[in-house]
Nucleic acid binder design. Structure first.
Length: 865
RNA sequence: GCCCGGAUGGCGAAACUGGCAGACGCAGCGGACUUAAAAUCCGCAGACCCGCAAGGGUUGUGGGAGUUCAAGUCUCCCUCCGGGCACCA
């Protein structure tokens, strides 16, 4: 009996997250105002803290835990600093996995998705994340996706959404089209074992290229974004300045037949020794029409390209080409050059045709070597003689040794180039483009790698595209033509009972009640568009919806969006650098041009956290190294799990998950709990300040010094470096010092107010990292209200200052001893102390002091000989 | 091939502007408490060598050179690992 009574009372002293965490979770759940954002008139500075919304797979993984632990710490810190914080969460809940699950389990996608959301919301609450659930956004619900449709209509009317037939990426696994951004190394971004096929389909596109220049130049100003992400976006946009030049086809029956080439080096045009066409090029096709041999060779090239693309490595195929036997006229010098078709010319970049200048381009050089095409040098470094020779066959030795291809354009000039000979390259590029324009055979131009965003998906679980095809046609619309629905017809609801099968074609096409409708203009029969939108549409603007999530009349109220935007801190994985993060920048500009918002960019600052790794590899089911957050929470509690995710590595680096480390954090939290609860009522327990004596005051001063240094360090880190791992280490140091001072507290030799300040502040410092424990301790300390609304402690520089400082003394760069001196001692004092130190003196005895370096506050180095 | 990161004890890491390398934690070892164990608390700890010990010496931040009184940190060259881009004319 006695034993159990004792163990019960000890039990109460023990840190038991399984008890305190659910208790606080229930209290927080019952208090929706706790994490609610306030209005624009609350008088506080706003802070929009956002983590990327997850796909509701049904299971939180460690990457989520890390992402949300970072965001949550920041949100709580900002609240404590007196900001009005918006910290929302939502669900990127359209997409293929729901259809796959439907196939597998015979569960409707909606049901499966909503159940997953419920499960993940429960996990997030269990983690104690400070989301304002009143602003929750679920993209698969009509309340949300109707605004996708609304935007789509706006874009259609603005000419930003259009249909065209083109070659598109098709994933046979997903049974749908993919955007360029969703093709990774020739594979589907979701199925890295599935080669993407090319199909000709008529699809809806969004005109992101209209904003290409702005998306590019905007990056220069985005210094709150990682340089890495900005670079990736720059490369993806791939702006390139050059010129279009028309080469007439010589002796063409069709007099107007010409080949327009794109080049960034029009200054090299006198060195062009052939014109190269992509196998898909229209002129190549027209030549092939009368030349079966050529036609066969072109077909072979196309087949080979397809194979290579499916193998995932386009650059692996060897360059080869075929001479068409035709010639083109170089408009600058009237020369005839042969026209070839070559497999390395991309049909969808530039014009699908180039002028080949072997002397000044790596690829052209390689190609010319292979086929013995002439190499003519027309660019030389400044100062070199400007007469050159036609080399005839390319050479790798002799006269051209190591000099070709010569690709530099800076500090280089033209040679053998008619009236432009001797001019610097860069200057000549402009003048020659202007010349072409004046003479009607070319112009300066800019091309982009970025293509318009193909958004049609032949899938069920997505936003229906709000368009119909009027069967009979009417004024201005031919039969079968596209008619946009009026806004009043929105939302176009996704039909609930749809059989999901693996056959091709849009599943919606098999739902007669959905497909068959009336034309909104003429009332005649019409069929609905049966493709749905890419799910990246959903995530392109969801963060605006958070500012006004319940609005039934508009996607959001502009005043609210303008108050909260831009996002002050966006946190997520780098894998979205050129998908979500470029689409949402585009969407923001579209909304701005529609007059809905004032900002150009969605997020002022972006943080990309590192991956969570186990046994040296990214966690994945196939590797069998997945660690379940649920299991960690069950064993060690949410506080310990989250805090470990912040402690194990700086947030931008990869993190190796070690369960023993979580146990260590749990132990640490237990220590905090034990100490704090023991001293939670100092006034009633002991303490009279008058007992303090000088030496004990020193111990107290030391404790307070560490306390204030810790405050300063953490406060500083939140505003800059975000090295939460060292913040937590600093708290551990503080706690170690408190534990060391415990005997003095026991004896009442540390004052009551000091003890109270130490534990009160410790609790506040822990609040962003271990919210459950902080809430519990705050209550036990008698704190009023939610700990997350208590003002963040302010470091007192006076209390934080070190009275004495240890200065290492080196002799010839090697440590001889450490001397202790009052802080702020001047150079002379330090040097004197250093040189008179016994150990130091012993080392410099019998030597000559050459030089003494004194760095006040840092060290002394005595150079002897 | 090009562009970013990164490499520090047995492990995760720290050292922010050049100034005591390894803070903090994990694992380990020793001790206290306990009949015992768990939990907890205290202590030790880069490696090598000398010493019974206190202590002392050498060496050490992927490799090599350099700048400097002083280099994990700066410069040059190289190796390996991770990520991105890759026939873009």
């Amino acid at each position: 009996m006695e034993e159990s009574a004792q163990s019960t009372s000890e039990e109460q002293q023990r840190y038991n997250p399984a008890e305190i965490e659910p208790k606080w979770q229930a209290r927080w759940d019952a208090d929706p105002a706790l994490y609610a954002a306030e209005g624009h008139d609350c008088g506080k500075p706003k802070f929009y803290c956002l983590e990327m919304l997850p796909y509701p797979s049904g299971q939180l993984h460690m990457g989520h835990v890390r992402n949300y632990a970072i965001g949550d710490a920041l949100a709580r810190f900002m609240w404590m600093r007196g900001s009005n914080v918006l910290h929302p969460m939502g669900w990127d809940s359209f997409g293929l996995p729901a259809e796959n699950a439907a196939l597998k389990n015979n569960t409707p996608p909606a049901e499966w998705t909503l159940a997953n959301i419920a499960a993940m919301r429960r996990q997030m609450r269990r983690m104690g994340l400070s989301y304002d659930w009143a602003t929750e956004v679920t993209t698969c619900l009509p309340e949300y996706y109707r605004w996708n449709q609304w935007f789509f209509l706006k874009m259609f009317n603005a000419g930003l959404a259009y249909r065209k037939k083109s070659k598109v990426n098709w994933c046979p696994q997903c049974q749908t089209v993919l955007a360029n951004e969703q093709v990774v190394d020739g594979r589907c971004w979701r199925h890295d074992d599935t080669p993407v096929e090319q199909r000709d389909l008529t699809q809806w596109f969004l005109r992101i290229t209209k904003y290409a220049d702005e998306l590019l130049s905007g990056l220069d100003k985005m210094d709150g974004w990682p340089e890495k992400v900005r670079t990736m976006q720059r490369n993806w946009i791939g702006r390139s300045e050059g010129a279009l030049v028309d080469f007439a086809v010589a002796a063409s029956q069709q007099a107007a037949e010409k080949i327009t080439v794109f080049t960034t080096r029009v200054d090299t045009i006198f060195g062009a020794t052939s014109v190269q066409l992509a196998p898909e090029h229209a002129v190549a096709k027209s030549f092939a029409a009368g030349n079966p041999r050529l036609a066969a060779q072109i077909d072979e090239m196309l087949a080979q390209q397809k194979d290579a693309r499916e193998a995932g490595d386009l650059s692996a195929i060897e360059k080869h080409g075929v001479d068409t036997g035709k010639f083109a006229v170089n408009p600058f010098n009237g020369e005839l050059v042969p026209i070839w078709v070559a497999n390395y010319i991309l049909a969808d970049y530039g014009t699908g045709a180039i002028m080949s200048v072997p002397a000044h381009d790596e690829r052209d050089f390689e190609f010319a070597n292979k086929y013995g095409l002439p190499v003519r040098r027309v660019i030389v470094p400044n100062g070199q003689k400007q007469n050159t020779e036609i080399l005839g066959f390319a050479q790798n030795d002799g006269a051209s040794e190591g000099t070709l291809p010569y690709t530099a354009e800076d500090d280089s000039s033209l040679a053998d180039s008619g009236q432009w000979t001797g001019q610097p390259c860069v200057e000549a590029q402009q003048k020659m483009a202007a010349f072409a324009r004046e003479n009607g055979f070319g112009t300066a131009t800019v091309t982009y790698r970025l293509k318009d965003w193909g958004v049609s998906r032949q899938r069920y679980w997505g936003t229906p595209i709000p368009m119909v095809y009027c069967a009979n046609g009417h004024a201005g619309i031919e039969p079968g033509g596209v008619v946009p629905l009026p806004e009043s017809a929105l939302p176009v609801l996704l039909p609930a009972q749809v059989e999901i099968t693996q056959q091709g074609g849009s599943p919606l096409g098999r739902v007669a009640e959905f497909v068959n409708t009336a034309c909104p203009v003429c009332g005649g029969p019409a069929r609905r568009e049966t493709d749905t939108m890419d799910t990246f549409v959903d995530s392109s603007w969801y963060f605006y919806r958070y500012t006004d999530a319940k609005n039934a009349a508009a996607p959001f109220d502009s005043a609210k969006a303008n108050y909260w935007f831009p996002i002050d801190q966006y946190i997520g994985g780098v894998e979205h650098a050129i998908l979500h993060l470029i689409y949402s920048r585009f969407w923001t500009r579209v909304m701005r041009d529609l007059g809905l918002i004032n900002n150009d960019e969605p997020a002022a600052r972006l943080f990309t956290q590192g991956m969570v790794i186990k046994d040296g590899a990214k966690m994945s089911k196939s590797k069998g190294n997945v660690v379940s957050p649920d299991l960690m929470i069950e064993r060690y509690g949410a506080d310990a799990t989250r805090m470990y995710a912040l402690f194990a590595a700086p947030p931008d680096r990869d993190l190796e998950w070690q369960e023993d480390g979580v146990a260590g954090i749990s132990r640490f939290l237990g220590r905090v709990y034990r100490l704090t609860t023991k001293y939670s009522e100092p006034a009633s327990r002991r303490v009279s300040e008058t007992t303090a004596q000088a030496t004990q005051c020193a111990a107290e001063a030391k404790l307070l010094r560490t306390l204030h240094q810790t405050i300063a360090k953490i406060t500083d880190d939140f505003s800059g470096r975000w090295h939460f791992n060292t913040c937590i280490a600093a708290i551990m140091i503080l706690v170690n010092e408190i534990a060391a001072a415990e005997p003095l507290m026991e004896e009442g030799k540390i004052s009551g107010p000091a003890i109270a300040e130490v534990f009160r502040t410790l609790t506040l410092l822990l609040a962003p990292f271990a919210p459950f424990l902080a809430a519990e301790l705050w209550e036990q300390l008698g704190g009023q209200g939610a700990v997350f609304r208590v003002a963040w402690p302010v470091a007192d520089a006076e209390l934080a200052r070190e009275a004495e400082i240890e200065i290492p003394v080196q002799v010839n760069g090697k440590l001889a001893n450490v001397v202790t001196l009052p802080a702020g001692s001047d150079e002379a004092t330090i040097q004197a102390a250093a040189q008179t130190d016994a150990k130091v003196a012993a080392r410099i005895a019998a030597k000559t002091v050459v030089k003494v370096i004194v760095v006040p506050g840092k060290l002394v180095n005595i150079v002897v000989r």
